[in-house]
Amino acid sequence: MILLPHFPWLIVLLAVVLLGDAILSLRPPAFIRDCLTGVGFPRQWWWTLIVVKVLAAVGLFIGLRVPGVALAASTGVICYFLCAVVAHVRAGFMGRELWINCLGMLALALTTASVSFTG
């Protein structure tokens, strides 16, 4: 098993995108608000998503030097966005927020993990 990424730039890209998403979520624009309210996520818990994204990004950056950490962090990001897809489907909120934001991030996380950690 490969524990350090083949393509560190992909790991950095995913981490930067997650940090950007977390920063946007501090004062969420309409598309983020629509997404969270559309799936019925309670507003008083929105801050937890920011923490999760920042911690994932930190894990990805640490994983550039510490074997296995970026793999674990990218797996966590995949699980996070899989849960988001399930939340969208369960809520019947299948608009562009699902297709662009949620599935786009899931695709980026899956691509990053599969390309970076497969032989």
Rank of each mutant, 00 (worst) to 15 (best):
V77I: 05
D21Q: 08
I78R: 02
T112M: 05
C83E: 06
G92Y: 03
T75V: 03
V17S: 02
S116D: 09
L26H: 01
V86N: 05
P8A: 15
T37K: 00
D34F: 08
L13I: 09
S25G: 11
N101M: 06
F117Y: 13
Y80I: 00
F61V: 15
R33N: 12
P29M: 05
T48R: 14
V52P: 00
I78G: 02
H6F: 04
M1R: 12
W99S: 10
L19F: 07
N101Y: 04
K53I: 02
M105Y: 15
I32G: 08
G40N: 07
G59W: 07
G68A: 03
F7N: 14
G92K: 01
R27F: 15
A30R: 09
L14I: 03
F31G: 00
P5L: 09
A15H: 02
G104W: 00
L4F: 06
F117G: 05
L106S: 06
M1H: 12
S25L: 13
A107C: 07
T118F: 12
L36F: 15
I100C: 01
V69E: 01
E97F: 10
C83S: 14
G104E: 03
L55V: 10
I62D: 00
P42Q: 10
C35Q: 09
L60F: 08
I50G: 04
E97Q: 14
D21V: 07
L36S: 12
G92D: 06
L108E: 13
L82P: 07
L82Q: 08
G92E: 11
A107F: 03
A113C: 11
L108N: 05
L64D: 01
G68I: 04
P8D: 13
G104R: 00
V58H: 07
C102V: 14
A57M: 03
A109Y: 06
H88Y: 07
T48Y: 09
W45A: 11
L3Q: 14
A113Y: 12
L55E: 04
L64I: 14
Q44I: 14
D34R: 06
L103T: 01
F41S: 13
